[in-house]
């Protein structure tokens, strides 16, 4: 029981990391980005590529992977989403699904469809005991990075000029524009931020488990589940949602592995019916 909780929370950190950007894009640009999982996977593979192919130290490869993914996100925004985000939401959904497919196929062309993993020699001890639970050191590092990056994102959104612009566009698109904010630029920056954090999640995850282009969709779905639980519109919600989802999915896979997906989706349905705003959401699940 205790170990399920601990391991679930540790996993939850990465889920939260992946979900921040998904939540941000849904809140600010108002689109469900089906390509989000592709960004997570891209970040992981780019990090692995930089580290293995060019011998870049992990920390630098991670940052490179994250920023590279952010850039990809911004390019996707400028070339595709910017032209369609005001259309029917369904059209944009289809479009981002198409983008996910294209990114995945291009990734497969470039990197192949094999699973890849980045093996790190951290010099850390393998782990330590927390009560009766063995906690692997690197899992804890990843968890800490999730929390710290959540705090960074919190500060960026709450305290900086850029953050104010993003929040303004989220709150009221027209008023934001009439306050002098360039909507297109702000959306590109939002997508950059979203991609950067997605890439960071991938960069951390690739050190724990193999990553391959075909895995993108489960990241998208997981991100969706996280913000359904945590609530849209707050980074704290995504963090809490990530941790709760981590424990939930770990518990389900531990106690009832064969029906684990049914359990996690069952919880999703319960949330949608009884608490559509999620645990910490600012408003209803879809604002616009």
């Amino acid at each position: 029981m205790e170990d399920v909780l601990v391991y679930g929370l540790l996993r939850g950190g990465i889920y939260a990391l992946a979900a921040f950007g998904f939540s941000l894009v849904l809140g600010v640009i108002g689109i469900v980005n089906f390509a989000h999982g592709a960004l997570v996977v891209f970040g992981g593979l780019l990090t692995q590529y930089l580290a293995v192919k060019f011998g870049v130290p992990y920390a630098a490869a991670m940052i490179g992977g994250a920023l590279g993914t952010g850039l990809l996100g911004a390019v996707i925004q400028r070339l595709f989403v910017a032209r369609t985000f005001t259309l029917e939401p369904l059209m944009v959904l289809v479009q981002t699904f198409g983008i996910a497919t294209v990114v995945t196929e291009l990734g497969t062309l470039g990197w192949g469809s094999e699973e890849r993993m980045l093996r790190l020699k951290t010099g850390l001890p393998p782990g330590f005991m927390l009560g009766d639970t063995f906690v692997p050191s690197f899992d804890l590092v990843v968890f800490a990075v999730s929390l710290v990056s959540a705090a960074v994102l919190f500060v960026v959104l709450g305290r900086t000029e850029f953050g104010r612009a993003i929040r303004a566009c989220r709150d009221n698109r027209e008023s934001a524009q009439l306050s002098g904010i360039n909507l297109g630029r702000t959306f590109e920056k939002t997508m950059f931020l979203s991609g950067t954090w997605a890439g960071l999640a991938g960069a951390m995850f690739v050190t724990l488990s193999p990553v391959a282009p075909y895995m993108h969709f489960s990241w998208t779905v997981d991100s969706f589940l996280v913000i359904t639980i945590g609530g849209l519109g707050s980074m704290l919600g995504a963090l809490v949602g990530g941790l709760v989802f981590g424990v939930l999915s770990f518990g389900a896979s531990f106690y009832a592995p064969t029906i684990a997906p049914a359990i996690t989706f069952g919880v999703l349905l319960v949330f949608l019916v009884f608490r559509p705003q999620g645990l910490l959401g600012a408003g209803p699940a879809i604002r616009k």
């Binding site: 008023s175 360039n182 909507l183």
Partner: peptide, 28 residues
Amino acid sequence: LRPDEICALGAVRTFQSASLLSGMTVWD
């Protein structure tokens, strides 16, 4: 021109029903 460009030139408007950045403070 885009709304933000027109705003930058110095023409602004208000809305019929107050259309604020609802979740943000007055200061923000």
